[in-house]
Design a binder for these strands. Structure first.
Lengths: 200, 200
DNA sequence: CAATATAAGTTTCTCCTGTAAACATGGAGG
DNA sequence: CCTCCATGTTTACAGGAGAAACTTATATTG
């Protein structure tokens, strides 16, 4: 039982442990101002150990963002599966899952779309983001085939949809959406407005 | 003629000079990773001088963001004035001005909406942001009064509109909007989709 | 108009960070 | 059993944030 041992020289899975610590700090502070040394400290290793697993600080941040995109994708997929047969219902479910994810993980969500998680410099991150984006794209295509969504260029549909969902998520995070009550009503209403424009 | 003097001990308007330098660096690098010391260096003063004008580094960043909101507001107001009499046209003009501003000043735009420009910690910044947001709100109200926009809760209208415009701007900045061509077409189409849902 | 208070700069100092290099360790394969 | 290598550790260094103490020009006041 290696978990009862106090401190074996070799951690076992330091990479994972560092990621977990960093995710925890991100969730606690809702920002990624933490220092690499602090992450190492809290993980119980020397301040140089992380460099055996991440080229530099940004590299760790990009890995956090990648995990964020994977989790977001899972949340959206799950919500859409449970969201009824109608594409419109599925869309609403997926969008609310995205906004809910952002509200539950504001720091992580911000990091995912920040310049510090540069997708042009990290293929795995880029792929994860595209994969999650693809979930939306496939739903739009399905809706068009079924005749639920207007047959305009898929790019325009995607731009409008993604902008709306991501925009709402960012506004929700900033608290700019909840002047009086943080309820789902304005979000739902905004999505309905979009869908009224989207649908045939 | 004080401007011909080489280096008077008192700069004259160091605060403004620091802001200009920082804005230039922000525009050059499209990020705000620059250090306060570097700003001081390029402005030709000692590294401690900025602290006479800004409590800390973040304080300077917030001031940059405030200026960004003012400039964005001016750009949107100007575009809307020149955008025809129809509210729908005005909306399109204002939205495109916002997206154009973001594309011309990606770094500044990102900073304005980043957690580093914390609006809850800076009244002037908060006010500037609200003032610019108010431009959109007033247009929506005008549109409702004229009967151009659907008479749903103004909050829902605002959420949908602001999310769409801001979302498109962020996507445009990230280059995620221009898979093949960076043309205005997808943006215009996305705005039309929104307006189809917004209008009566 | 001199004396001086004050705003605006500068120097110096401390603590901390990111990151490189050299060194240590212990588990896996010959 | 012995040696290699991935994974840790120690040590070292260049820079940055910000505080404190010191300096200088400008504005005020008797």
């Amino acid at each position: 039982m290696p978990e009862t041992k106090d401190r074996p020289y070799h951690h076992g899975d330091l990479r994972r442990a560092l990621i977990d610590t960093a995710l925890a700090m991100l969730a606690a502070d809702q920002n990624w101002a933490f220092t690499l040394r602090e992450v190492a400290r809290r993980t119980g290793v020397s301040h140089a150990a992380p460099y055996k697993h991440f080229r530099d600080r940004e590299s760790l941040l990009r890995e956090l963002a990648r995990i964020g995109f994977i989790r977001l994708g899972q949340a959206m997929t799950a919500a859409m599966s449970a969201g009824g047969a109608c594409v419109r219902e599925k869309f609403i479910a997926g969008a609310q899952a995205c906004i809910g994810f952002a509200l539950c993980n504001p720091g992580l969500y911000r990091l995912m779309f920040s310049a510090d998680a540069d997708k042009t410099a990290d293929r795995p991150l880029h792929d994860a983001a595209m994969e999650t984006f693809g979930i939306l794209l496939r739903l739009l295509q399905e809706g068009q085939i079924r005749g639920s969504f207007r047959p305009i260029a898929i790019n325009a549909l995607a731009a409008a949809s993604w902008a709306q969902v991501h925009g709402l998520a960012m506004l929700a995070i900033s608290g700019q959406l909840a002047e009086e009550k943080v309820g789902r009503e304005p979000v739902r209403a905004a999505l309905d407005v979009l869908l009224d424009g989207l649908c045939c």
